[in-house]
């Protein structure tokens, strides 16, 4: 048994029975869940056709619970990594407040419940897509890619990009070009977003033995790849407008936000030493969240105004 897990078991013995409701809530990664709910809602609102508000609510709830369940399974499997990183050592399992087995059963139960309810009450395709998302995040990303390759978050990003597709499928029962475009947008957004964080948390990832790009290929190569993905992302953000799927508001906002994204990414590419480099990475990380939020907010507003 490793030193970390010995420490954790000792703490677990002391804290056993003290897990609060908030610890189980934390297992669901509520901040990630809120982004998933938001992008899933955009998928529902943008889809052609009607959905009863109660059924729409059930779809969103299942997407949220399914994403949370995948988060709980990720925390169960990655408890050893989480215990070695400053950013994550306060999570319920490494802190000893929740037993790993409890988190696993909690995650499995919620996964099954969310997929079955979504499949039976909303639609089979939506249920199947949610099952695939959970499997991809918990098994393909957490158990395999994360510890195996610096491309972990690139491929694993597919799981985070699926919620708008699930939302769309909840209404229409199929998948078409627009939700696939939204999927691609989030998929291409993920690498520059996470690598900006990875530049800042390089030592954390090194200590945990996670092969993030800065640890494997170096900071300069990471900056180059952030820039390349940003060059792809900016026009991709405008694509829904260029293909006639959105109005002028989205067109104008996506162009402005895309240009700003390139400015922040260029700062990361150009500033390579000391405090300015760190600040540039921080700015890109924070802006990337705002970028995706604003793009989807405009999509939501335009979708509701139709």
């Amino acid at each position: 048994m490793s030193l970390v897990s010995e420490e954790r078991s000792a703490r677990a013995d002391q804290l056993s029975g003290f897990a609060g409701v908030e610890d189980y809530w934390a297992l669901l990664k509520p901040r990630v869940m809120s982004l998933v709910v938001f992008t899933g809602l955009v998928g529902i609102v943008r889809a052609p056709g009607d959905i009863h508000p109660v059924i729409g609510f059930v779809a969103l709830l299942c997407i949220a619970i399914g994403a949370g369940a995948a988060g709980a399974l990720n925390m169960w499997y990655d408890a050893d990594i989480d215990a070695r990183m400053d950013r994550t050592r306060g999570r319920p399992i490494p802190a000893g407040r929740v037993e790993p087995g409890e988190a696993m059963v909690f995650g499995l139960f919620l996964s099954a419940a969310s997929v079955i309810i979504l499949g039976l009450m909303v639609g089979m395709l939506a249920g199947a897509l949610l099952a695939f998302t959970i499997f991809f995040y918990a098994v393909v990303y957490s158990m395999w890619l994360k510890r195996a390759t610096p491309q972990n978050i690139v491929i694993g990003g597919a799981a985070g990009a699926l919620p708008p597709v699930i939302g769309w499928a909840s209404v229409t029962g199929n998948v078409s070009l627009e939700p696939l475009l939204l999927f691609t947008l989030i998929f291409i957004w993920t690498p520059p977003h996470f690598w900006a964080l990875a530049l800042l948390k390089k030592r954390d990832y090194e200590r945990a033995g996670v092969p993030m790009l800065p640890n494997v290929a170096g900071d300069d190569e990471t900056r180059r790849q952030i820039w390349l993905y940003s060059l792809l992302l900016a026009p991709l953000g405008v694509a829904p407008f260029a293909l006639g799927m959105t109005g002028w508001l989205y067109g104008a906002v996506s162009i402005a936000l895309g240009v700003l994204f390139l400015v922040f990414a260029w700062q990361v590419y150009r500033k390579r030493e000391g405090e300015p480099a760190e600040r540039a990475a921080k700015h890109l990380f924070a802006y990337s969240i705002l970028y995706l939020f604003l793009l989807f907010a405009v999509l939501l507003v335009e979708g509701m105004a139709r």
Binding site: G17, F18, A19, G20, V21, Y24
Partner: peptide, 13 residues
């Protein structure tokens, strides 16, 4: 035998 804190925690769960 559970402590008071454990009982409170269990009640909330």
């Amino acid at each position: 035998v559970l402590t008071e804190a454990q009982k409170k925690s269990r009640k909330r769960r």
